[in-house]
Design a protein around this nucleic acid. Structure first.
Lengths: 341, 341
DNA sequence: GTTAGCACTCATGCCCATCGAGTGCCAGAC
DNA sequence: GTCTGGCACTCGATGGGCATGAGTGCTAAC
């Protein structure tokens, strides 16, 4: 879509004024903001044309305009001046987000919390995932005579454990067999390669001895699935209640965010370094009043997980996009340092 | 407080009618509900006296009565007929809450979820805690040349891990030293006994050799603290939005619930098998419109953690208290089975 | 102690008038 | 052809006035 320079300026002004005030924007305030040497009537005509192009909308005849999702899109793609974070903001983030806890899960949770606080939106974050995540170690810990806990540790620093009940007594030699099997065949492989089927063929190839290992190996498969599928961390949901655009539908939105799969799909669909999804661009009806900013962090050269935020369409893209970017870079740097030397 | 039988009946009727409808209760509906052979005027006089006693309140002169928190308290303590769960409800719970996942954390999360769904309130749950939780095992896993992950496993089935960075290279002998120290002095002791101070004296008693162990032991102390302090799981927060009594203050309440320490204090203060805290009985201003039901589950003979729910004061105590109790019993049974043989 | 009756209170809903922000459009100016 | 001032019109928001109805408190009589 090609717009005259003046139309672009007006569209940007409408978007920014609306983001600021939350109210529909009239021609008069636009004139004030731009102090172009034209009258409000001229602006009105231009705005009317922008409406015809689908970039602006009118809540009711004869009230000001608000940007449509295509309007926001045009703004984000072509008009927006990004505001980089200033020093004090950076300092605050750096102070709050660190790897002191030594647990990637906590780091990402904290990152989400900080982002949610900074932006007054809900934040999501996920652990590193994908092919780069290897099985680092598998442990078996006897808990009772017939109960064992299996622990799986990944190169991403993620740990998962499960209790496994057996219908026979565990003895030392079995532990050793288990240990040998797993260290020979599983440790070092990508988590996502381990599946129930793969473990069954593994057991079969080992003959009768391994038969009793089946329940244990099944548990390992469960753990691998668990460690692999993105456990999405959601922070600052309650911030969404602050936005009047959600006043009616907040409950529905929060209910939606609580369910994991739709979010998972959204995240899986986002393959770029940074994605912005605005309003109706989201495939889910429940998100049609929301915008989502998702960014990916890397660990070393490898793809890590994502950090993102969810708010109303009326969010300050120019400030929030750089914030999300800064945070993903920081998290990537911290995790790289901690996990890759 | 001594009430005539008739006053008791009237109070119970007002509480129950208000729980049902959410509206202030007038003398006429009370007459209908009780079909006593007295007129509404008589009931009015009695209700007026119940108001004077502080058991009922009037939102404004000349509207019906609603129970005060002392009114609810009297009802819960003396008047309420508990409704036990019926078979289909039990079946539903039993089907949803199981130890299949093999992870106590997931079990308790699921229990909270089920409770929140059943009751349309927010649910909290905590892992087993207290003196009964012992250190089962401590592992050290080298991740890089100067990075190790330490894993702590408790008898409650809880696992915690942290990455620990060192300013020297790890070698096999150090791992062994660490292993020997921890298995001799820490494994088998209650988690809550392990503190930073305790580990420092331990290191000191071991002489120079143990000096290099200090950062590792510090990490162990962190892990122990982590495993000990109740990580409260909160489910179904968004249910709170369904209740009109929270329509204005939902955000504040959710913000409050997000912060961990106040909840922790509430839980720590509840030492009984079952506690019901009604409205202003809660010390926190943010909870003065809420009621809390907390129940404790046991693992074997030992104290476990808690499961509870948070809703408006206007909740159906007679039904919800048994639900919470049933769920705690179930969780206790499942965890006992899984962890104690 | 109980009741019928009555005056009184308040929240609620509805109607209606008013107000004001903002638009659309037209006729005339540049 | 583009811009502008002016004007009629739309529509939501605000607020007063009024009727309604649920419910109370009180009193006098049973």
């Amino acid at each position: 879509m090609d717009l005259s320079e003046r139309k672009q300026k007006i569209l940007a002004a409408v978007v920014e004024l609306h983001i600021e005030s939350g109210e529909p924007v009239g021609s008069k305030v636009v004139v004030e903001k731009l102090d172009m040497s034209v009258s409000s009537a001229t602006i009105r005509n231009e705005m009317s044309e922008l409406s015809a192009l689908g970039l602006l909308e009118q809540p009711h005849t004869s009230s000001g305009r608000i940007p449509s999702h295509t309007g926001y899109r045009y703004y984000v793609d072509h008009l927006m001046n990004k505001y980089e974070l200033n020093d004090s903001q950076r300092k605050r983030i750096n102070a709050d987000v660190s790897f002191n806890e030594g647990d990637p899960e906590k780091l990402l949770e904290k990152a989400g919390e900080v982002l949610a606080d900074m932006t007054n939106c809900a934040a999501v974050s996920t652990l590193p995932q994908g092919e780069s995540v290897l099985i680092k170690r598998i442990e078996i810990v006897p808990i009772g005579a017939r109960t064992a806990m299996i622990v799986l540790l990944t190169s991403g620093g993620v740990i998962r454990s499960r209790v496994c009940r057996l219908d026979f007594e565990l003895d030392k030699s079995m532990l050793e067999v288990f240990y040998n099997i797993t260290s020979a065949s599983l440790v070092g492989r990508p988590v996502c390669e381990v599946s129930a089927v793969m473990l069954q063929t593994l057991a079969a190839s080992l003959g009768i001895e391994a038969l009793s290992m089946l329940p244990l190996l099944a548990t390992v498969a469960d753990l691998a699935r668990d460690a692999e599928d993105t456990d999405i961390m959601l922070e600052g949901q309650s911030n969404l209640l602050n936005h009047r655009e959600f006043s009616g539908s907040a409950q529905e939105l929060m209910e939606f965010l609580r369910r994991a799969e739709p979010l998972n799909r959204l995240i899986a669909a986002s393959k770029n370094e940074l994605d912005v999804l605005i309003g109706k661009e989201n495939l889910y009806r429940q998100l049609e009043k929301s915008s989502i900013i998702l960014a990916r962090y890397n660990i070393g050269e490898k793809e890590g997980g994502i950090i993102g935020l969810i708010g109303p369409t009326r969010i300050d893209y120019a400030r929030l996009i750089p914030s999300v970017k800064y945070l993903t870079n920081l998290v990537g740097r911290l995790l790289t340092q901690a996990l890759e030397d």
